[in-house]
Nucleic acid binder design. Structure first.
Lengths: 131, 131
DNA sequence: TGCTATTTACGAATGATTTCGTAGCTAATG
DNA sequence: CATTAGCTACGAAATCATTCGTAAATAGCA
């Protein structure tokens, strides 16, 4: 069982940066963060320390300047969060969520094609399972 | 412009009950809530009062026992929350969210059909707009 | 070596959310 | 009419998230 992951708003911002950039120092993360947000360096540091305590991050402390890395995968986290949202906001109906997402977000043609292709793939699997 | 809606975890539980049951007294809501959760009556009351202050609920105080009703629609709230999740968790990609939702949740055949139908509907609209 | 810059650690202030005790009001009952 | 049961209002405690100041350690450089 993969541990319960429940990042807060701020933690998610940091995870996104780490997922995108790979292992990084606090300073790197902080610089990224500072581009969209106002915050002191020690604030970022503290957050990342807390995240390390919570096992959201791994830390390489072999050099003075520590290097942090996400300890939870983006996939896993997305899955967990979407499941929770389906349960708590969409009465357990994935399709309701999907339609709401498509309706309220204006997906591009490419995105729609991607989804269609994905659905076809599922279809096949379902049929196979039934036969 | 519809006001910013950002219900907390607990507030969402209450909204769900009200969306499902329609206008209700605090006691009714509390009884529902108590089925899945441990909490005192005054806790529920206080939450609903706060939600009223925040304009998340409407209140009919004409009788001694007040009757509350959701002041925000389920649709609107779902849309707002899904948009936020797309932005903060899925890098702005609706299709990524949709696929994650379908992949991690095991939608039924009926649900998949619903989604397919919905996609076809969108397709038509897109074509029309282009012609 | 001694100074400076950068880093981590720590603790505490602030703010938001959740919880609940207590008081006061009102309606129903004996 | 007095008592009781159930309701709302209010305030404050408890908890969690966020922010930051300050100290201590370390590495690089004049």
């Amino acid at each position: 069982m993969t541990s319960k992951v429940k990042p807060t708003e701020s933690e998610l911002e940091i995870l996104n940066i780490l997922w995108h950039n790979g292992p990084s120092t606090v300073r790197k993360v902080h610089e990224e963060l500072a581009m969209t947000k106002e915050a002191g360096y020690t604030t970022t540091l503290k957050l990342m320390q807390i995240m390390h305590d919570k096992k959201l991050l791994k830390r390489d402390a072999s050099s003075k300047t520590h290097v942090f890395e996400a300890a939870v995968s983006q996939q896993q986290t997305q899955g967990q969060m979407i499941r929770k949202m389906i349960d708590t906001v969409f009465n357990g109906s994935a399709s309701q969520l999907v339609m709401q997402a498509l309706g309220s977000h204006k997906a591009s043609k490419e995105e729609l094609d991607e989804i269609r292709a994905y659905l076809e793939g599922m279809e096949k699997k379902t049929k196979k399972a039934k036969s």
